[in-house]
Design a binder for these strands. Structure first.
Lengths: 106, 106
DNA sequence: GGTGAGGTATGATGCAAATCGTACCTAGGA
DNA sequence: TCCTAGGTACGATTTGCATCATACCTCACC
């Protein structure tokens, strides 16, 4: 697992958002690619999913008509322990502060 | 602490190397800025240190004549638990095992 | 005071990445 | 069958970033 690819993938807000939303689901369910509310057009979205895939941060399953992504949690937790929690936390604090009294500005 | 800045900072090999080398020192000592063997000129090195500083990944102390950097370990461990271990590990495995052609980085 | 080494600031340049439009493909429903 | 919706492929454009050369600054040392 290439740390360079991983960090480059996560450097982009849209891509980080995708992984974070997947990580924030306690059930770890698959999500349709179109279900992410990204501020980009279709082509760019496809591009982002490709970058995430090549970094090993998502798995993509093709339905022909549509496709869905999910998180290889075991792989990620083994190679990048703590990362998913981190991303999920950022997501949470972005829309609402839920941390234990630590209001220190990020 | 801005995850975007952190990941963008760590997306660059030279910068990741700096943090990794600092993290790999069990003593957590300060290091002179010039003591890192980076394949770039002075100006680019200054730039990299600035990016790392603004991401909160290093502290820089100025001597007028020279300057030294160190790791705000507590801060990093609190906000990004596990990161330093990860980087130090990459450094260790990178120098021994054949990484994909990164020795020609210039 | 002069010199040299280490850093920084600034402007320019080249490359990689992000985005878009468009064309195309596949599946499902009218 | 035709139409529509979700994805992908490809080319073009733009933006951001890494890098450099150069000039300047600050200190240590002679």
């Amino acid at each position: 697992m290439d740390l360079g690819k991983v960090f480059r993938a996560l450097a982009d807000d849209s891509r980080r958002r995708v992984v974070a939303e997947l990580a924030a689901d306690p059930e770890g369910r698959e999500r349709a690619c179109g279900s992410f509310d990204l501020p980009v057009k279709k082509a760019a979205r496809t591009h982002h999913f490709r970058v995430l895939r090549e970094a090993g941060l998502i798995m993509q399953r093709d339905h022909g008509n549509g496709s869905a992504v999910s998180l290889p949690r075991q792989d990620i937790e083994r190679h990048l322990p703590g990362l998913l929690v981190l991303l999920a936390e950022e997501l949470g604090s972005g829309s609402r502060a839920g941390r234990t009294g630590s209001a220190t500005a990020d």
